[in-house]
Design a protein around this nucleic acid. Sequence first.
DNA 1: AGTATAACCTGTCTGC
DNA 2: TGCAGACAGGTTATAC
Length: 267
Amino acid sequence: MPELPEVETLRRALARELGGRTLTALKIYEPRLLQNASERKLQKELIGRRLCAVKRRAKFLLFDFGKHAVILHLRMTGWLTLHPVENPRFVFEFSGKKTLSFHDTRRLATLHLVPSTQAHKLPPLAELGIEPFQPSYTVENFVALLQTEQEIKRLLLDQRKIAGMGNIYACEALFASTIHPQRPAMSLSHAEARRLFVQIENILKQAIAAQGTSVKTYRVLTGESGSFQNFLRVYDRAGEPCVRCRTPIVRITQGGRGTYFCPRCQR
DNA sequence: AGTATAACCTGTCTGC
DNA sequence: TGCAGACAGGTTATAC
């Protein structure tokens, strides 16, 4: 479900609503969620601890409880809310009567417990690549990643290379840059690479400002929809006329994922 | 090494 | 109406 803008939107709301509060209870209802720690271990290490920060790395949310941190990935259908939900996968209770519930229809989400100071060098964060809005995201580093025959769209989805983008924003960034998604990455000129580099941050920034894209299940913490779905120009628009040239948008499959693009604008 | 496919899950939509 | 099949915002194990 969520890509970088959706996770960042949630992070900001979580930091505002729960930052500084103490965890008073914790219950796991979906054991499959847990990757490296039992419910008992989580309760032992976290209950009574203060949530000192809510951070984000790519599409991962990191709840920093000081000594330990919980790392959550929402995958396709995970969503967090301060309202009660049916069949929650976990519930965290905080001081001040704040209850955080997690729902996940497809049960694909993951949760890790890690020592806070080691988080960035342990799974699941260890292998992540450069990330938009971070100091490592420079045009030089970006261009260096393109020295491969791999299709550019597929490269954009490879979290070990560029972390945080998903299917929607990869399609939108390529459209904004007028680059064909099947181009070998190394075939991009320096000007094209620079254009894509800039448009990735541009699109993500706009999407964060719009509180993310609600296509199906994603909602902000309050339960409301994001609004960037109103600004998508190619994603999920197969057959509709391109906003620039009126040519019908085409859908193809790359690596098992749908890719949407304008066959005339994107070369 | 890099890449393609299947697998993990469940809900929804489309076409016959 | 029923049902099979495709598809969904993501990652990862396995098979070439």
